[in-house]
Computed example of a mutant assay.
Amino acid sequence: MKHIAKAVALAVLALLAPHVVFADYITDAAQALKNAPVYVAPGTEGTDKDTAGKLQERLNKDDNIVLVMLPAAAESSLGADITTIASRLSEELGNRRIIGLAVGNNVVGYAPTLPAGVAADQMRRARSVSNDPVTTLGTFVQNMHIWQRENPQLNPPPLDSPEKGGLSWFVWLGIAVVIVLVVIAVLAVVASQETESSTEKTRFRAPDQVKELLAKIVRERWQIKDSELKDALYQLCVDIERYFSSSSKDKKRDSLFFRDRLNEVAQVLAKYADVQDNPRYYTNWGEELQRGKESITDFSEYVLESIRRGSAEDLFDFRVNTNILQAQRYR
Rank of each mutant, 00 (worst) to 15 (best):
R96N: 13
R96K: 15
R97Q: 13
I98F: 07
I98D: 05
L101H: 12
L101Q: 07
V107W: 01
V108N: 09
V108E: 07
G109D: 08
G109E: 14
A111W: 12
P112D: 03
P115H: 09
D121K: 14
D121G: 14
Q122N: 10
R125F: 08
R127F: 10
S128Y: 05
N131L: 14
P133L: 01
T135N: 12
T136R: 10
T136A: 13
G138I: 03
T139M: 07
T139S: 06
F140T: 15
M144K: 03
M144H: 03
M144E: 11
I146Y: 01
W147S: 01
W147P: 04
Q148H: 06
N151Q: 01
P152S: 07
P156F: 01
P157N: 00
P158Q: 01
D160V: 08
S161M: 05
P162F: 10
P162V: 08
E163N: 08
K164T: 14
G166W: 08
G166N: 10
L167W: 15
L167T: 09
S168K: 13
S168Q: 11
W169K: 10
V171L: 09
V177S: 02
V178M: 03
V178S: 04
I179G: 10
V180Q: 02
V180Y: 00
V182M: 13
A185E: 04
V186L: 15
V186W: 13
L187Y: 03
V190F: 06
A191T: 11
Q193H: 09
E194C: 05
S197L: 13
T199N: 11
T202V: 12
F204E: 00
V210D: 07
K211R: 15
I217C: 05
E220L: 07
E220K: 06
R221W: 00
R221K: 06
I224W: 14
I224E: 08
K225Y: 01
L229T: 10
A232M: 05
A232L: 06
A232D: 13
